[in-house]
Simulated assay, not measured.
Amino acid sequence: MGEGLTDEGRYDQGMAVRREVLSDAHVDRATANQTALSADFQDFITRVAWGDIWSRPGLDRRSRSVAVLSSLIAHGHHEELAMHFRAAIRNGLTIDEIREVILQSAIYSGVPAANTAFRIANEVFGSSD
């Protein structure tokens, strides 16, 4: 966890976790597209989301991915769903497990939310027809 680390240490830890979860290619694109307007936000998410929260020992990365997918589906944050479907695979979930997360979300977040999540999952993983 980021406890006792300097801001620089939290950033470095966060960047390492961010790269492991999202891939070097994704993080390289995000940093290359960083602007003066978004630089502070990129620093913030690297230090706080990745350096503090994703680095905590209380849940493994598979469990964190399930929580993130469920939350993104529930709140309709579709712009990040594809990225986190790929991250979930990197964190050890299978496509079958991701299907179950989406089905579970249909009960608690609604059929339209799950329908959209399945559409995005099909775009990411391809159709199994």
Rank of each mutant, 00 (worst) to 15 (best):
D28M: 07
S109W: 00
A25I: 14
V21G: 04
T46C: 06
R62G: 12
E3Y: 07
T35I: 05
L5S: 09
Q42A: 06
A106W: 06
P57G: 12
P57T: 09
S105D: 05
N91C: 09
G2N: 10
S105V: 02
A113R: 13
F118A: 05
Y11R: 02
I102E: 01
V66R: 00
Q104W: 01
H84D: 06
D40P: 01
S109P: 11
I89E: 01
T6A: 01
V48H: 10
G51F: 00
P112V: 06
A114D: 00
V21A: 10
D96H: 12
Y108K: 05
R47P: 00
E3F: 05
F125V: 01
R90W: 07
E20H: 04
R90N: 15
D40F: 04
I120Q: 02
W50K: 00
I102S: 03
G76F: 08
D60G: 15
R64M: 08
R64F: 04
R47C: 02
D24K: 11
W50A: 01
T6H: 04
A82F: 05
F41Q: 10
D40I: 06
V48A: 09
L5W: 06
E80D: 12
V21W: 03
M1L: 10
L81K: 05
I120F: 05
S128N: 10
A67V: 15
D43L: 05
V66N: 00
T46M: 03
A16Y: 02
T94P: 11
E97N: 09
R119E: 11
S70A: 15
M15P: 03
T116M: 07
E97I: 08
I107D: 08
A39C: 08
T6V: 02
F118S: 05
R29Q: 14
Q34K: 15
H26S: 14
R19E: 06
H77E: 13
L103W: 08
Q104N: 10
G2F: 08
L69G: 05
A67L: 15
V66W: 00
H75M: 13
V111D: 03
S109I: 02
P112A: 04
R119K: 13
T35R: 02
I120N: 03
A49I: 10
R86V: 13
G4K: 08
P57I: 05
R64H: 02
R99F: 13
M1P: 09
I107F: 14
N91G: 03
H77V: 14
A82C: 11
E8Q: 15
G4M: 03
A36T: 13
M15F: 09
M83E: 10
V124A: 01
M83H: 12
E79R: 12
D96S: 13
M1R: 07
H26W: 12
N33D: 09
Q13F: 04
S71P: 08
S128K: 13
S71F: 06
H77R: 15
Q104M: 06
R90Q: 14
E79Q: 13
I45F: 09
A74I: 01
R56P: 00
Q34P: 12
D7F: 13
Q13E: 11
I95C: 13
H26I: 12
T31G: 12
D40N: 09
V27R: 03
L22V: 08
Q34H: 10
G126P: 04
I102R: 02
E8M: 12
V68I: 11
A49K: 02
G14W: 00
A36M: 12
N115D: 03
